[in-house]
């Protein structure tokens, strides 16, 4: 019985729906996360990823649908769920007026850790994030990157089986971002930690084992990053021009396909892969003087996003989910 419980997926979400008043933040999202996986939720602000994060961390009950963590319902069994998850928020959760050690001490007490065991865990975690020598410093004296490390130490202090991270890289410099990822990989390998993180950085999404793309509250894609990119199946050509709409219409007329205008440029997919050069040469010849620059590339995750939603990733100006 117990063993069957422990084999429940770390996260299982079914028909997850949430409305903030009249605004739908999630519209029936389904996915599950396997044990030991680093699972990413990618999407622009307002896409719904922070809402998923809040529901999984038991801060917000869903309007409809269900979310289970190791088979436990996040609403009905919230106390049991809380014991098994570590949560690292996007906004700081440290008390800036307290030292690093004091912050971890309070955190440990909230999870029932005390005395020798607590001191041992604190030392272990601080050592792991390389902050043993700063343990007596006030948090407000630490740089943003170091504070984030303390946040992670805090979230892992009680030895959770599932770590939830909301936009872990925002506000981190590239070096700190690399450290964070090395650390996550290590925890996953050594302790079988399962990780769910939200991100709007493509480079970060690339590193996840599997990726769900959230757009306007719907999961528009779900696969490994490489499978997602291969799904595009070809090369991506981008043309710079004076009048992108006119050029798009002309290409449509003479070449067919599905050219689109994005960010003042014409974008066209060339299938199968490897045909991009040929097609771009034909395009430039067909419209002499109109094309000022040509870019040919392998599809990026951003192309996946564009293909699945018809929107450019950064154009999204919908309301931010983060209140």
């Amino acid at each position: 019985m117990l063993s069957s419980l422990s084999e429940q997926p770390p996260i299982e979400v079914k028909g997850l729906t949430h409305a903030y008043g009249a605004r739908m933040a999630l519209r029936g999202v389904d996915f599950f996360v396997r044990k030991g996986e680093i699972f990413g939720l990618l999407g622009p602000n307002g896409g719904g990823k922070t809402t998923v994060f809040r529901i999984l961390s038991t801060l917000l009950p869903p309007t409809a649908g269900s979310a289970r963590v190791f088979g436990l319902d996040v609403v009905r069994d919230s106390a049991a769920v809380r014991r098994r998850i570590g949560v690292v928020f996007q906004s700081p959760s440290l008390d800036r007026k307290l030292t690093v050690m004091e912050n971890l001490g309070h955190q440990g007490h909230l999870y029932g850790l005390r005395g020798k065991l607590l001191r041992q865990r604190m030392g272990e975690m601080l050592g792991r994030v390389g902050l043993l020598d700063r343990s007596r410093d006030l948090v407000e004296k630490l740089s943003g990157g170091l504070q984030r490390r303390v946040e992670i130490a805090k979230g892992l202090l009680h030895g959770p089986d599932l770590l939830l991270l909301d936009e872990p890289s925002s506000g981190l410099d590239p070096g700190a971002r690399r450290d964070l990822w090395r650390h996550l990989q290590e925890l996953r390998q050594k302790q079988g930690l399962t990780v769910l993180l939200t991100t709007h950085f493509m480079e970060e999404a690339e590193r996840c084992d599997r990726l769900g793309i959230l757009h306007r509250g719907e999961l528009v894609a779900l696969d490994t990053p490489s499978e997602l990119k291969q799904g595009i199946g070809g090369d991506v050509i981008t043309l710079e021009t004076e009048d992108p709409v006119r050029l798009r219409d002309q290409i449509q007329e003479r070449f067919g396909g599905e050219p689109t205008v994005l960010n003042g440029m014409v974008r066209i997919e060339s299938r199968p892969a490897g045909t991009g050069h040929e097609l771009s040469a034909r395009l430039v010849q067909a419209f002499p003087g109109q094309v000022s620059a040509v870019t040919i590339g392998k599809p990026h995750l951003e192309d996946v996003f564009i293909q699945r939603t018809g929107h450019r990733f950064w154009e999204e100006t919908g309301e931010r989910a983060e209140a």
Binding site: L59, R82, V87, F89, S91, S93, D95, L110, G112, K154
Partner: peptide, 13 residues
């Protein structure tokens, strides 16, 4: 507002 409460609210207390 400063965020400390959110980590208390997700703790098993």
């Amino acid at each position: 507002r400063e965020g400390f409460l959110q980590s208390v609210l997700v703790a098993p207390v």
